[in-house]
Nucleic acid binder design. Sequence first.
DNA 1: TCCATTTATATCGTGCGCGACCTAAAATGC
DNA 2: GCATTTTAGGTCGCGCACGATATAAATGGA
Lengths: 147, 147
Amino acid sequence: MDSFDIPKQADDLFCFGVYTASHAINRAYSPHLKKLGLTYPQYITLTLLWERDGQKINTLAQKLEMETSTLTPLVKRLENLGHVTRSRSQTDGRAVEVFLTEQGVALKHKAPEITSCMSEQTGLDKSELQKLQTLLFRLRDGLNGGR
Amino acid sequence: MDSFDIPKQADDLFCFGVYTASHAINRAYSPHLKKLGLTYPQYITLTLLWERDGQKINTLAQKLEMETSTLTPLVKRLENLGHVTRSRSQTDGRAVEVFLTEQGVALKHKAPEITSCMSEQTGLDKSELQKLQTLLFRLRDGLNGGR
DNA sequence: TCCATTTATATCGTGCGCGACCTAAAATGC
DNA sequence: GCATTTTAGGTCGCGCACGATATAAATGGA
């Protein structure tokens, strides 16, 4: 019978938790990001570039679990905002590399305050957030499983 | 110094885990839902109605952490698909109540198989999924904090 | 009763997100 | 070297998601 103990209530669906949590996160970030004139996906994309500048569209898309058809226009908006530039790779004419402008680099200094503010707001301590991260990554990797 | 031990790598940002996991979940559900002709948000909305029929737009939106401006057109699509009907409340002419059609009720029987399939695919056992759920709900509630 | 305020939903504009399709550049095979 | 295939981005259409705004119904005083 235990094998039929499948969650039937929406509150028990693991997917429901991620779905609603992502909405809540978006909403909580919103006031901070509005001051910077950024959306949440734009901000997340910039964090990847702050770690390593000059990444290809494809690389960024994989890290974000996102299709290039989503990322291309997003990066163009970041370009219009003056935070990044896009240029064809010298070694591979198909690939487009994304580079931070000075303005884009400067934004990096605003991030730590936002992050710490958000972390605090969750009400979870550091070890719990770490545990959550680990479970989420294992879940994600499991779902990607066969590639 | 520990107070400055703020995550600086995107992989350490708790928000990053939820963001990418939600994309992965969406993608994993996609093939199952395509057979039913549903999107993921539509499916999640139906699960709420399977628990309790005849809920108001407002109630559903709160449970989904979603604005009514998002839910209204979504529910209209479910109506066009023949899964639900919308009707003004008898007692409150402002409110719209959403009811499952026979067709909508029938879909419920397909859900357990999808759920169990997805749960298995995550690679996490039941207690880990439970732990994940708990952390996500605490995070969500913490972020909603002052409201 | 009447009118101001609040509440529930709907509408609109912008950006995210995906699948389907297109183009060009690179890699492969003969 | 040239034809075929694969890969990287880009474009398009549809649906999700939110904030701003609108409108109608309910509420609450004076």
